[in-house]
Write a protein that binds this DNA or RNA. Structure first.
Ligand SMILES: [Zn+2]
Ligand SMILES: [Zn+2]
Ligand SMILES: [Zn+2]
Ligand SMILES: [Zn+2]
Length: 831
DNA sequence: CTCAACGTAGTG
DNA sequence: CACTACGTTGAG
């Protein structure tokens, strides 16, 4: 109290002080009144300590991007320095209590480092109540009664037993340490409500409480009900069976929100939905969700809650941040860290525990059992860490008890999710889309669209079966993003089986002009709602290095070292990797290796959920295929801003609204951009996309486009004219591959522009695709003779291009370079 | 002390 | 509600 009083006084005092009159604007941020308010609001419980960056997470370790909204404001980047906000790319994922924080009761700092046992650690660490703001050692609380509800979203954050009992929701207050979307630059969040696309998501009700996230107890009645239900289900059936959770919600509609991740992250949830689980209750048996913490941390008694706890475990992840740190500090229990990954994976694969296991066995029989057994043990012990992945449950699952837990966990949230993910939907989507043309690099040339679709369909169907059995999606909700990815992968997984097809997808999707007349593909925009991603917190990957060897039950380590395993894993499809991730913590950890996820393919994934997004972020892919998805602008902005290393981005068939995220978010290393068949993308939009940021600030003249490093640009099916081509030439000096197939406005003049003297494209162009461009004639071929590096000219299905013209081109070029006709009107340089 | 940036008052 | 601005806290 004293402290708070002092603070109030301080505030008052300061507010009364005359202000420096520097500010350009007379606005007063803090008026005396406001100061008072502040103190009052905090009054009951004392002021909340401001959190500070952890300095360890991926975000904290980054350098300032220099391009985001806040960076631009910084003086060092030429801005006025008024906003004083952290670079968006560096927004800490796990803000910690200040080092100076001490226990309100004993006055001492956190002492978790002094013990090894997780439970002990928990009792000795400082926990900040998101409701009353008090910071205490759980051990110092007299009443250990019911225990508090741990918020895994934030390190050292819970709802203390007092508040918990009092039934306070704490909703009103925003949880500590979280920035709301409002803190982010508008560009990130805004979605222009333009046309059609917009609707993607009904705005979610504000999520008022970030802090709430998990509350088990929270006031929300809904949640409670849900919870109750959930537990039952869990108990009753193994995850698989559950029918789509939808029923539970009562809301049949598939919301994005539903995604598995949700549990943990309320952030995303917009609606009231019962996100329930973010937090883990420590000791309440009631909650089905009770988080892992209980088990792991078990501050109090695990006993009663076991079942619930298990479910909750998934949550471990959330908590994880702290845990991880702890672990790191320690020796690192391999297992714990691994959990994170596992969790994610779980999300992907969870549901099917049984199935998964089987699969895993199939894949790797020999080792599994032992390993699995072993790891389970390990994992169980570790629990308290806060893993980056929220899915938490996975790791724990390993142990026997955990297994149960998994099953239980899975259930709840997912209902909706399951639907969304259901393969059915996917299939439906696929069918709708007429054209998609992705070819594998090999196909480069074109392959009939249909084939792919059918392919996908098949896959999805297969998947479906699984789902039906397992209801994966349902469970997943809890999982972290990875889980999401997993789900999606599972669905379409079959596709990949065995083959690295993904790569192909990413590789070149050159559209194939199979049917010259093809109508523009209809993008399938699913109705999904977006989620408020801003609030989504992504847990950083475990800091400690992954274990080098598998620990066997007998205490020995497996002969194969990690790198050897990695070689094996590198031959698996993403789907199978997700399966493997469920085997044990170690595998979980290994399978999440970035090297295995350089390319993430969500092509045609019906709905992109927040969990998926976070799963993507965690894997930091180099290539990302979001073609034909209904991703929203907000989501894409969020992603791009967190994928600084992204080099390949495929957005075919997405809406312009979504694609416009590229106008505001920078993707410095982007080399390949696929925006084929983007509805509404015309010259004006191309201008927005290519034009350098209009920077009003003096001194920061940057005439370079954000897309200046693009080498491979795919514009199939866009209604763009020479106006856009001029911009492309101007702003993409390294452009090597350009796909303008199905661009009806492209003419010989366009080619003339592209190959004109003085343009960089003239010499940088190696591949040009003008197939099905009916206005292009033999004249264009003469222009191409000016290109110094041209290797591949695709003029197939160009009605006005003659075979003779091509032959003449070959003849004339033969002096310097040998060209051949790979196919009719398809000129290829012969090496 | 300086620098970063948290969290919210205030604005439109 | 989205967004700006800024006092103030926290790290070093
Ligand atoms: Zn920045
Ligand atoms: Zn951090
Ligand atoms: Zn204490
Ligand atoms: Zn409290």
């Amino acid at each position: 109290m004293c402290v708070s009083l002092v603070r109030c006084l301080t505030l008052l005092y300061s507010s009364l002080q005359p202000r420096p009159s520097n500010r350009p604007k007379p606005k007063m941020a803090a008026s005396p009144a406001s100061a008072v308010k502040l103190s009052v609001s905090r009054g009951t419980s004392g002021a909340r300590r401001r959190r500070t960056r952890c300095r360890k997470c991926e975000a904290c370790l980054r350098t300032e991007c220099g391009e985001c909204h806040f960076c631009k404001d910084m003086k060092k980047f030429g801005g006025p320095g008024r906003m004083k906000q952290s670079c968006i790319m560096r927004q800490c994922i796990a803000p910690v209590l200040p080092h100076t924080a001490v226990c309100l009761i004993c006055g001492e700092a956190g002492k978790e480092d002094t013990v090894e046992d997780d439970e002990e650690k928990f009792n000795l660490m400082l926990m900040e109540c998101s409701i009353c703001n008090e910071i205490v050692h759980p051990n110092c609380l007299k009443v250990k009664d019911s225990g508090g509800v741990v918020n895994d979203e934030l390190p050292n954050c819970w709802e203390c037993p007092k508040c918990n009992h009092a039934g306070k929701t704490g909703k009103q207050k925003r949880g500590p340490g979280f920035k709301y979307a409002s803190n982010l630059p508008g560009s990130l969040l805004k979605e222009p409500r333009l046309n059609r696309d917009i609707k993607e998501e009904p705005d979610p009700p504000s999520v008022a409480a970030a802090s709430v996230t998990a509350l088990t107890m929270t006031s929300a009645v809904k949640r409670k009900t849900e919870r109750e239900e959930i537990p039952k289900r869990k108990d009753e059936e193994p995850p698989k069976k559950r029918p789509p959770l939808l029923s539970l919600d009562g809301t049949p509609r598939p919301r994005l929100e539903d995604n598995p991740l949700r549990k943990k992250r309320k952030l995303f949830d917009t609606n009231d939905e019962p996100v329930v689980v973010k937090k883990k209750k420590l000791s309440k048996p009631d909650d089905p969700l009770t988080s892992k913490l209980l088990q792991q941390i078990k501050t109090e008694n695990d006993d009663g809650d076991d079942e619930d706890d298990h479910e909750d475990r998934e949550e471990e992840d959330r908590f994880p941040l702290d845990r991880n740190n702890v672990n790191e500090k320690k020796d690192d229990d391999e297992a714990e860290q691994e959990e994170d990954d596992e969790e994610e994976e779980d999300a992907l694969t969870k549901e099917k525990d049984g199935i998964i296991e089987d699969k895993a066995k199939v894949l790797l029989n020999p080792l599994l059992r032992t390993l699995a057994a072993r790891e389970r043990d390990q994992s169980s012990s570790n629990s308290p860490r806060a893993g980056p992945s929220s899915e938490s449950g996975d790791g724990q699952e390993k142990s026997c008890g955990q297994l149960k837990a998994r099953q239980q966990r899975r259930r709840f949230p997912n209902k909706e999710l399951s639907k969304e993910f259901s393969s059915e939907d996917c299939v439906a989507n696929l069918n709708r889309r007429p054209l998609k043309i992705e070819d594998s690099p090999a196909n480069h040339n074109r392959r009939p669209l249909k084939s792919e679709d059918s392919f996908n369909n098949q896959n999805s169907k297969t998947l479906r079966t699984e789902d039906a059995t397992t209801n994966q999606s349902c469970r997943w909700p809890l999982n972290n993003g990875r889980g999401d990815l997993g789900d999606w992968l599972h669905h379409r997984g079959r596709e990949m089986n065995g083959t690295p097809r993904e790569y192909s997808t990413l590789g070149f999707n050159r559209s194939s002009p199979i049917t010259p007349i093809c109508p523009r593909p209809i993008p399938c925009r699913s109705p999904p709602k977006c989620i408020q991603m801003e609030r989504h917190v992504i847990r950083p990957p475990p800091i400690s290095p992954p274990p080098d060897r598998l620990l066997l039950n007998d205490g020995e380590t497996h002969i194969m070292r990690r790198e050897v395993w990695m070689t094996v894993f590198s031959h698996l499809t993403h789907r199978d990797l997700c399966v493997c991730m469920r085997v044990c913590r170690t595998w979980n950890r290994w399978c999440c290796d970035k090297r295995l996820w350089k390319h993430i393919d969500l092509n045609r994934c019906k709905s992109i959920t927040p969990p998926m997004l976070s799963g993507i972020i965690r894997r930091q892919p180099v290539a990302l295929d979001l073609s034909w998805t209904n991703i929203s602008k907000k989501q894409l902005s969020w992603l791009i801003n967190r994928l600084p290393g992204l080099r390949v981005l495929l957005l075919s068939g997405c809406s312009w609204v979504a694609v416009s995220a590229l106008c505001t978010s920078s993707c410095p290393l982007l080399r390949t951009l696929d925006i084929q068949w983007v509805e509404g993308l015309k010259d004006a939009q191309m201008r927005d996309l290519l034009s350098p940021p209009t920077d009003n600030r003096p001194g920061q003249l940057d005439n370079r486009s954000k897309l200046r490093n693009v080498v491979d640009l795919r514009l199939t099916g866009l209604d763009i004219t020479d106006t856009s081509l001029r911009l492309i030439i101007r702003y993409m000096p390294f452009l090597s591959k350009l796909d303008l197939s199905y661009c009806n406005h492209v003419t010989d003049q366009s080619v003339n522009i592209l190959t004109a003297a003085g343009t960089t494209t003239r010499d940088s162009l190696t591949d040009i695709n003008l197939s099905v461009c009916n206005r292009v004639t033999d004249q264009s071929l003469t222009y191409f003779k000016r290109c110094g590096s041209i290797c591949h000219i695709d003029l197939r299905y160009c009605k006005q291009v003659s075979k003779e013209g091509c032959e003449q081109f070959i003849a004339e070029m033969s002096v310097s370079v040998q060209f051949g006709l790979t196919e009719e009107k398809l000129l290829q340089k012969l090496s």
